[in-house]
Amino acid sequence: MSKVVIIDYGAGNVQSVKFALERLGVNAILSDKPEIINSADKLIFPGVGEARSAMEEIIRVGLDKIIPHVTQDCLGICMGMQLMCNFSEERNTKCLGIFKEDVKLFKVDEKVPHMGWNYVKKKESKLLDGIEDFASFYFVHSYYVPENKFSIGSCDYGLTFSAIMERDNFFGCQFHPEKSSKNGSKLLENFLKL
């Protein structure tokens, strides 16, 4: 069985991701140690909270030098995906630069945070095999990544934003697959099979 490591840098709810993988029969390891991260077959980069303090912690433990260069498949979840971008408007934070895009604050005529289940329009990707177009996923966020050339899934909330991105071995989803019932579980299963 492949070795799955959840990058644990103190960014909130990592237990839910671990439990979701357990439901798929995978016992993931939580770690912020470079040698363990480098030895993984699959990496998950979660994140809940605030971008600036998360990046400060990532820099403190030296993960800013590791994550952008990993060669394994790596899935960023929620703020994890945002931290994979260039820059976030959330307290003007420089991020990891894996996706050359900027993260913006929602300025729409809707309630913020965008919280609840919303539909995702998908493009072709192995990550989304067996998931229907306009399948629903659970979102909780106040900042978003605009639609861009890496987007393989988009979502509407006052504007159209990136729900899922892909660049080589890097993937990101703005929603929480670990909380998105069968569709989320299918996405995680696809990721593990890549």
Partner: peptide, 8 residues
């Protein structure tokens, strides 16, 4: 709950 439930 968190171990078994896959919704928020």
């Amino acid at each position: 709950i968190a171990k078994q439930i896959d919704i928020p």
